[in-house]
Simulated assay, not measured.
Amino acid sequence: MSKYEEYDYVIIGAGIAGCSTAYFLSKYSKSILLIDKNEKVAFGASGAAGAFLSPLLGKTNNFKDLITKSLKFSTQFYKDINSKSLSNCGVCRIPKNDEDRKKFESYKDYMDFEYSVLDDGYFFEIGSQINPSEVCELLTKDIDKKLNYEIKEFDRNEDNSWIINKEIKAKNIILTTGANTKLIKEEYFDIRAVWGQKIDVLTSSCTDINYHKACSVSKAIKIDDNIYKVSIGATHHRFDCDKNICDYCVQVANLNKNCSNCYSKSIVNEDSLKLIDLANDIVKLEDIKVVDVKIGPRASSTDYFPMLGKLVDSKRSFEKFPHLINGTHIKDEMLEMIDNLYVINGVGGRGFVLSPYLANQLVENIINKSKIDETITTHRLFKRWAKKQKHKK
């Protein structure tokens, strides 16, 4: 009898990316374990998300195409899983200033979704919002979980499987840990935390749709006579911490129960007041009372595109192709990869738009060997990093 708990797939990170991956994998396997350092699913950055689903405006490019495909996929996905919290009420996108309005006007020929002019902005019927906890719990209701579980050791076994904390054996590991990249030892895998905050307020004002300007404001939920709950969210801070010295804010568990050393209560309170001011610049909210505040580090890549698939093994790739350091072009499929280790990361502030689409893509790649678009694989980050190593030497 094995001394380990054994699984075919261990997913580390129970935000929307990890929960979506578990859901799609469960169509092919029953041997799945979902691990998270927090006490609940969607208790980190995903729980602090406004979870708004909104179009990206702009001229045609690869990133916008990715967001458009993801938005169509994810909106239908949340409907298909019968999410009780999905509110497909539409969103009014409002320009921040005259310069922003000119940009909006220039984007009209490139709109991917139907819209109409509404007051001072543009109304998109596809705009939606969901509740992070409800959706993540729904996706993982039949999945084995280890929550409040800290990973201290993470090593390759002689049979090419992975051993976690000398307790769990996994044939495959999928890392969906967001801004906390301590388990990824590759230097090229550069992720920055952009901190976001969401507040729920009670108000006597009733909003009928979602709004987005400098922050996002949700459709109101009626609580009692003349009392409504409204969510307000935005991305705020990049802290210039040296992750090699201190990465406490990103790594601490159950952050929303215990404010961290750096992201203090004073910052949280100050940002709540800013969010209320930004919301009132969109729609006037009367008799506001803040009833819930959540913060979280949203994982952003250097080029804003997400990362999907296996990790490039930089050491073995350099050994095989020493001239990579001179910028020599090597086909992606020729690079050495880390077997049985996959990632979804870098979804930024659009996690609930991107994650279901990316999770489905990854699972189809793992199970059915379908190709992942080169714009979202880890190869691009490795190649850019490799070219810089000659200068460093």
Rank of each mutant, 00 (worst) to 15 (best):
Met1Asp: 13
Tyr9Phe: 14
Gly15Lys: 05
Ala17Lys: 10
Ala17Cys: 12
Ser20Pro: 03
Thr21Arg: 02
Phe24Gly: 06
Lys27Ser: 02
Lys27Met: 00
Tyr28Thr: 07
Ser31Arg: 11
Ile35His: 07
Asn38Tyr: 05
Ala48Lys: 06
Gly58Thr: 14
Asn61Cys: 13
Ile67Phe: 03
Lys69His: 09
Phe73Ala: 10
Ile81Ser: 13
Ser85Tyr: 11
Ser87Gly: 11
Lys96Asp: 12
Glu99Cys: 13
Asp100Glu: 13
Lys108Gln: 03
Asp112Asn: 12
Glu114Ala: 15
Glu114Trp: 10
Phe123Glu: 14
Glu125Gly: 04
Gly127Tyr: 02
Gln129Phe: 05
Asn131Phe: 06
Pro132Tyr: 09
Glu134Asn: 04
Cys136Pro: 01
Lys141Phe: 12
Asp142Trp: 06
Ile143Cys: 03
Leu147Cys: 15
Tyr149Arg: 04
Glu150Ile: 12
Ile151Asp: 01
Ile151Lys: 05
Phe154Gly: 07
Asp155Thr: 12
Arg156Asn: 11
Ile164Tyr: 00
Ile164Cys: 06
Asn165Cys: 12
Lys166Met: 10
Lys171Phe: 05
Leu175Gln: 02
Thr176Gln: 04
Thr176Asn: 15
Thr181Val: 06
Leu183Ser: 09
Lys185Met: 12
Glu186His: 08
Tyr188Pro: 00
Ile191Leu: 14
Ile191Val: 15
Val194Cys: 11
Trp195Ser: 05
Gly196Phe: 05
Ile199Thr: 08
Leu202Glu: 00
Leu202Gln: 00
Ile209Asp: 00
Asn210Tyr: 04
His212Glu: 11
His212Phe: 12
Lys213Asn: 15
Ser216Ala: 08
Val217His: 05
Ala220Val: 07
Ile223Tyr: 04
Asp224Ala: 12
Asp224Cys: 08
Asp225Pro: 09
Tyr228Leu: 13
Tyr228Phe: 13
Cys241Tyr: 06
Asp242Ile: 12
Asn244Leu: 15
Ile245Gly: 00
Ile245Pro: 01
Cys246Asn: 15
Asp247Ala: 10
Asn258Gln: 09
Ala279Thr: 11
Val291Phe: 07
Asp292Asn: 10
Asp292Trp: 12
Asp292Cys: 03
Lys294Glu: 08
Lys294Asp: 08
Ser300Ile: 11
Ser301Phe: 00
Tyr304Ser: 04
Phe305Cys: 03
Leu308Val: 10
Lys310Thr: 09
Leu311Tyr: 08
Asp313Ile: 14
Ser314Arg: 01
Ser314Trp: 05
Arg316Tyr: 05
Ser317Phe: 02
Phe318Trp: 13
Lys320Cys: 06
Pro322Ala: 14
His323Pro: 01
Asn326Ser: 09
Thr328Cys: 12
Ile330Thr: 10
Lys331Ile: 14
Asp332His: 01
Met337Leu: 05
Val343Gln: 01
Ile344Cys: 10
Asn345Val: 03
Phe352Pro: 06
Phe352Gly: 05
Leu354Lys: 05
Pro356Gly: 04
Gln361Lys: 09
Val363Cys: 09
Glu364Gly: 02
Asn365Arg: 06
Ile367His: 11
Leu381Asp: 14
Phe382Lys: 01
Lys383Glu: 14
Arg384Ala: 08
Lys388Phe: 07
